[in-house]
């Protein structure tokens, strides 16, 4: 299986203590090392207001991970672990590598197209001014 890139976002209850969060993150890391995955990024977006009520909460602590793995089963394992945790009220995994591949392809296409087009030489301000007075002199 080729390497896949996933985004994992989970939202924890607003007043969750640090220890609980550390437990959750530790279990994610543990699952990754077991199943063969690498955590590329780990971010904490802080406590944000939610767009709608989730589990009767209006705010939540957002945590974001980016995971690279060859094994798709890792994601179902992670989701299973997050589902079990009481402090996690919402989670979502998104597969990113196809989108990134497409983005890269489009960027390369665009750059190729731009390179093929003949670039116009930069118009210097002195150039048009020089012939104009000569023309006026000849006309006058």
């Amino acid at each position: 299986m080729e390497e896949r890139l996933y985004d994992l976002i989970f939202i924890a209850r607003p007043a969750t203590p640090e220890d609980e969060i550390k437990k959750v993150i530790h279990s994610i890391e543990h699952a990754c090392t077991e199943k063969g995955g690498k955590i590329e990024k780990a971010e904490h977006w802080g406590t944000r207001k939610l767009a709608y009520r989730v589990a009767k909460h209006r705010e939540g602590m957002y945590y974001y991970h980016q995971i690279r793995t060859n094994h798709g089963e890792l994601i179902s394992e992670l989701e299973r672990r997050l589902h079990v945790q009481d402090s996690v009220i919402k989670y979502m995994t998104i597969r990113l590598d196809e989108d990134l591949k497409r983005q890269k392809k489009l960027t390369e296409k665009r750059e190729k197209r731009a390179a093929r087009r003949p670039r116009r030489p930069a118009a210097t301000p002195a150039a048009p001014a020089v012939p104009a007075p000569e023309q006026q002199a000849t006309a006058g």
């Binding site: 904490h44 977006w45 802080g46 944000r48 939610l50």
Partner: peptide
Amino acid sequence: GSTAPKAVEAH
């Protein structure tokens, strides 16, 4: 609350 989230390296 549609402001972009600020990413903080916490771990």
